[in-house]
Amino acid sequence: MQIFVNGEPKTVAEGTTAQQLVEQLELTGKRIAMERNQSIVPRSQYAQTELREGDRIEIIHAVGGG
């Protein structure tokens, strides 16, 4: 199925969880936060959060700024 990660289309297996997505993106253990269709996905919920076709995922981190 196709989802969007940070605005880019990405094909993932049916039933992929947020946790698995983070692993696939090699972001495990990084200081990140995730939004799915404009709602926060708490880190504690990654394993239980199954992604769906067309989901818009945003994965953010802190960068330099004033």
Binding site: L25, I32, I59, H61, G65
Partner: peptide
């Protein structure tokens, strides 16, 4: 110390040090 919140760079060197 202030920081900005932005998209992570997907697919870039995962070992790159981050601001935090």
């Amino acid at each position: 110390v202030t920081v900005a919140i932005r998209r992570t760079n997907i697919g870039q060197n995962p070992n790159e040090p981050s601001l935090l």
